[in-house]
Computed example of a mutant assay.
Amino acid sequence: MTSTDDAAITVTDNPEQHRFEIHAGGVLAGFTEYRVREDRYSFVHTEIGDEFGGRGLASWLIKDALDEMRTRGAAVLPYCPFVKRFIQRHAEYQDLVPAAERAAFDIPQG
């Protein structure tokens, strides 16, 4: 990450609003929304504020959210195009998408 103080970046789950949020310097910089059904999280939308663009915050947000999904033992359905591309490009997260669902999201079977 460039031009942003890593210590000032935090990612937290906000279950009341069904989203993970990323804050930069205490200010909400963006979020990724999800829907939960049992142990499956469907990521449906990711948004970063215009004033925070170009800093890699969306990737940081998705990485932390997916790391949390792994910790929870949850499956991920990447309906959000950004989350889908992130998983396609980072093989270490592809196993979070259930094998039977990978073809629907163009995720390699690994």
Rank of each mutant, 00 (worst) to 15 (best):
A7Q: 14
L77C: 06
F86L: 00
R102C: 05
F43N: 00
R102K: 12
V27W: 03
G25H: 10
G25Q: 09
R19S: 07
T71N: 13
I62V: 15
F31K: 02
D95Y: 04
N14W: 08
T10Y: 09
R35S: 11
D67H: 04
E51N: 08
A74D: 11
D39N: 15
Y41V: 09
G110K: 13
G110T: 10
T2A: 12
G53Q: 12
P81D: 12
P81F: 05
G56Q: 03
D67S: 07
I22H: 02
E47R: 05
E21V: 13
T12D: 13
L96C: 07
L77R: 05
G56R: 02
P98Y: 02
H45F: 08
E92L: 01
Y93H: 08
D64S: 09
I48V: 13
V44R: 04
G30Q: 06
R85I: 04
R35G: 04
V83G: 07
R37A: 15
P15G: 10
I62L: 01
H18C: 10
I87V: 11
Q88H: 07
Y34T: 08
M1Y: 14
P98H: 03
F82E: 08
S3P: 02
I9Y: 05
P108W: 05
L96H: 05
R72I: 02
M69K: 01
L66A: 02
Y93W: 08
G53C: 10
D13L: 10
H18A: 11
T32I: 14
Y41D: 03
S3E: 15
C80W: 05
E101F: 00
G56V: 06
Y41S: 10
L57W: 00
G56S: 03
R55C: 01
A29Y: 01
V76E: 01
Y79Q: 12
R37C: 11
E101D: 14
F43Y: 15
A24N: 13
A103S: 13
P108T: 06
Q109L: 14
W60K: 08
P81I: 07
L77Y: 02
E21L: 08
N14H: 10
T2V: 13
R19C: 09
I9R: 04
F52P: 02
E47N: 08
F52D: 07
I107M: 04
A74P: 03
R35N: 09
R55P: 01
R37V: 13
G56T: 06
C80T: 07
R40C: 09
T10Q: 15
R55W: 04
D5F: 10
H45E: 04
T10H: 14
T46D: 08
G110S: 14
H18D: 10
S42Y: 01
L57H: 04
R72F: 09
R35Q: 14
V97N: 01
D5G: 10
L28M: 15
G73Q: 12
E21Y: 04
P108M: 06
R85F: 03
M69W: 00
H23L: 14
L57K: 00
